[in-house]
Amino acid sequence: MVAPVEIVTEPALVLQFLAWVLAGSLLGSCSGLVPGLHANNFAFLLAGVAPSVPGPPLFVGCAMLAAGVVHTFLNAVPAMALGVPDAEMAVTALPGHRMILEGRGYEAIRLSALGSLLAVLAAVPLAVPVTWVVTAAYPTIRAHLSIVLAMVVVALVASEHTWRGRVGGLLSFALAAGLGALTLDLSVDAPLEAGGVLAPLFAGLFGAPVLIDAMCGGGVPTQDGDAIRTSRRAVAATAVAGALAGAIVGYIPGISAAIAAVAVLAVLPNGASDRGYIVATSGVDTANTVFAFTGKRRS
């Protein structure tokens, strides 16, 4: 005979928990909508003030998770509407801009939100088993990390459809590797701590080019509507595949959301479209946040 299960509720504790989650969601909304801000900014803030704030440490962690997840729902808005993407959403900037120029900006934002929502629904039940599998395989991956990353580079270059594109990919990789080798070990003295050399690097790589290009444009055209012009099956398959790829981003150094999104689109039929890029990248970005909190993040 199965023993009865007793459920005890504490309304005050539940309200306190919901308040922390709501506070984290508001912080994630701010970081997602303001260009240049990231959920990690608020995570550090919460971690700094946590000892002086009444409440269980678990609630602080829930607020940080809420901030991170909500951020990934909203960071597509500045990436598409304002032209200042962060590193995770850089790959969606140009596809999103093309859709805006076609008058489909509202659809692009809806696709990003759907990609994030479906990724959460897929990542939550898969988080624990996927984390177990990746954790078990990680020592082997870590021991051969240089080979894994070299294979990723070869696959990305090979995914280009023309030899001109492949040569351009190799040149881009060489320039990026050279830039990192020359700058990442530099010590930047500044009045404020802003991430060392990474802050100006990211501003130059992800912010400035899109803004400079936008200066020559004619403004945002009238947007026609928000109806999604792709099948529900395609959106769902791309988002779920992005959720699985989010686990890879969370555990293998050097693999970004943009790279994982390219890999997702390469294996999906008719995936390499502007709409596919937006859904896949949003799914990878959101799922990565969920998976990052289920296990110890590797570096």
Rank of each mutant, 00 (worst) to 15 (best):
G61F: 15
L26P: 08
H71L: 08
S52Y: 10
A19T: 15
A43F: 07
G68M: 11
P57F: 02
V21R: 00
A19M: 04
L27Y: 00
L18C: 11
S31V: 05
G68D: 09
G55K: 02
E10R: 04
S29W: 02
T72L: 09
P56F: 08
A66P: 11
T72E: 08
V70L: 02
L37F: 06
A39T: 10
L15W: 06
G36D: 14
W20F: 04
F44V: 15
V34H: 00
P51C: 05
C30V: 05
G24C: 03
V70D: 01
S52E: 13
P78S: 02
S52Q: 11
W20V: 13
L58P: 05
V49K: 13
A23C: 05
C62T: 12
C62N: 07
G24L: 03
C62S: 15
L58G: 14
P54R: 04
P35D: 13
A67N: 07
V34G: 06
L13H: 08
N40S: 06
P54W: 03
S29I: 07
P56W: 05
W20N: 01
F59C: 07
S25P: 05
G68P: 12
L65I: 15
N41E: 05
G61T: 14
L45Q: 14
A67L: 04
L33Y: 14
L26V: 06
P35F: 04
N75G: 06
V69C: 06
P35C: 11
A63V: 07
V70I: 15
A66H: 06
G68H: 10
A12D: 15
A43H: 08
V14P: 12
L26H: 00
T9H: 03
A63S: 09
A79Q: 02
L18T: 03
A47T: 05
T72N: 07
F44R: 06
N40I: 08
H71N: 07
Q16W: 09
A19L: 14
N75R: 03
C30Y: 15
F59G: 13
L18E: 00
S31D: 14
V8S: 13
C62R: 08
F73R: 00
P11L: 14
P78Y: 00
F42Y: 10
H71G: 07
S25D: 01
W20H: 03
G24P: 14
N40M: 09
T9Y: 03
P54E: 09
G36L: 08
S31Q: 05
G24E: 02
V60F: 15
Q16A: 12
L13T: 14
V21T: 07
A63F: 04
E10V: 15
P35T: 04
G24M: 01
M64G: 10
S31W: 01
V69T: 04
L33Q: 03
V34I: 12
V60Q: 06
G55C: 09
L22S: 01
F73D: 09
I7S: 08
F59M: 13
N41F: 12
I7F: 13
V60C: 10
A12H: 05
W20Y: 14
V14M: 12
S52L: 04
A50H: 07
F44T: 11
N41H: 04
L74F: 09
